[in-house]
Amino acid sequence: MTLIVDVASFVLILAGSFFIVAGGLGLMRMPDVFTRMHAASVIETLGAGLLFIGFMLQAGFTLISAKLLFLLALIFFTGPVVTHALAQAALQAGIRPYLAEDRSDRPDGPPKGSSGPRRPGEEG
């Protein structure tokens, strides 16, 4: 039984390591800042997730697992906040993303400018 858990956790940790290295590689290879964010979010989601699930299998049903779960939830909830803030700031600063196709002005899409009801407490 312990052998199965050990093997499962080793496989998970190795898979997590693979995704972390892949994310780092993407950070180097991608052509501009927006595409690099996609590579960084591979590290934040699947890399961290698989690594921590592997650790949780090693730690068993203890307080350490609870802490790992908190840390994972922290990374999962703060990751998109930072990525969104970064993308918004880069767009606002006038950095033109390297694009193969710009579909933001397509005729059947939502209209430009503020459309629909603006919700209270929302940044424009």
Binding site: M37, H38, H84, A87, Q88, S115
Partner: peptide, 12 residues
């Protein structure tokens, strides 16, 4: 991964 919300304006 693969999609990023870059700006929010109303509900667009």
């Amino acid at each position: 991964p693969g999609t990023i919300t870059a700006a929010v304006d109303g509900n667009v």
